Computed example of a mutant assay.
Amino acid sequence: MSFEEDDGQSGYVSELLEGGYLEGAEIGAAKAFLAGGDLSPPQQYVFDSFVLRKHEPGACKRCRNGIDWPEKYESKHNGGFCGYCANVIHKADRDD
């Protein structure tokens, strides 16, 4: 899967890498994924377990819906909200 073909997963992995969230084998697995090559079984395990699952923000804390790949990195920084709910909360805070 190339960066242009996926649903935002590559962007999220790239942001985790650039943001300094990954370490050790996680960095190698993330770079291999972003390069578009096939991951070896150990790399795939590290990628699935320690890149994706470890950094999964979970469901939105307001609406409980899943958070799309393009919004996951921001969700890690806004308290765990999807883009829509983060905007609603931000707007409500401005109106107070």
Rank of each mutant, 00 (worst) to 15 (best):
N65Y: 02
R62L: 12
N87G: 15
H90Q: 07
A32E: 13
K54W: 02
F47Y: 15
K54P: 01
A59Q: 07
I27F: 06
S10H: 12
G24D: 12
H90V: 06
R94Y: 06
V88S: 11
L17W: 04
G83C: 05
F33I: 08
G66F: 01
A86M: 04
F47P: 05
G28I: 03
P42L: 13
K54S: 13
Y73L: 04
A32K: 07
D95K: 11
A32F: 00
E56I: 02
D96E: 12
F3L: 08
A29W: 01
G80V: 03
E56C: 12
A32H: 05
P41G: 10
D68Y: 00
Y12F: 15
E26Y: 06
G80S: 12
G24N: 13
S75G: 13
V51D: 15
P57W: 07
G79R: 08
Q9S: 11
A86E: 13
S14Q: 12
E26N: 07
G20Y: 03
K54C: 09
Q44E: 13
I89L: 14
I27Q: 12
E23L: 08
K76T: 09
E5F: 05
E23K: 13
P42S: 14
C82N: 15
E23Q: 14
D96F: 03
K91P: 02
Q43K: 04
R64K: 14
L52Y: 03
G36V: 03
D96Y: 03
G83D: 10
G66K: 11
F47V: 04
E15D: 15
E4N: 08
S75T: 10
Q43R: 09
Q44W: 05
K61W: 02
D93A: 10
G20A: 09
G19K: 04
G28S: 09
A30H: 07
L34Y: 08
Y21H: 15
Y84V: 07
G20R: 08
E18K: 04
A32N: 12
V46S: 10
D48N: 11
V13Y: 00
H77R: 15
G8D: 03
R94S: 10
E4A: 12
R62E: 11
E4V: 04
A86S: 14
S10P: 02
Y84E: 14
A35W: 01
C85W: 00
W69K: 15
E15W: 00
V51T: 10
D6Q: 12
Q9R: 10
N78D: 11
V46I: 13
G11W: 00
W69S: 14
S40C: 05
A32T: 14
C85K: 03
Y73K: 05
G79I: 02
G19H: 07
H55G: 08
S75K: 05
P70A: 14
S40F: 04
G11K: 01
G28E: 13
A30K: 06
Q43C: 06
G8P: 00
A92D: 13
E56K: 02
A25P: 00
Y45C: 09
A86K: 14
C82H: 07
G79D: 10
F47K: 09
R62K: 11
L22Y: 10
A30S: 13
E74N: 11
L16V: 05
A25T: 06
L34V: 05
E56T: 07
K31F: 01
E71I: 00
S14Y: 01
E5H: 11
N87L: 10
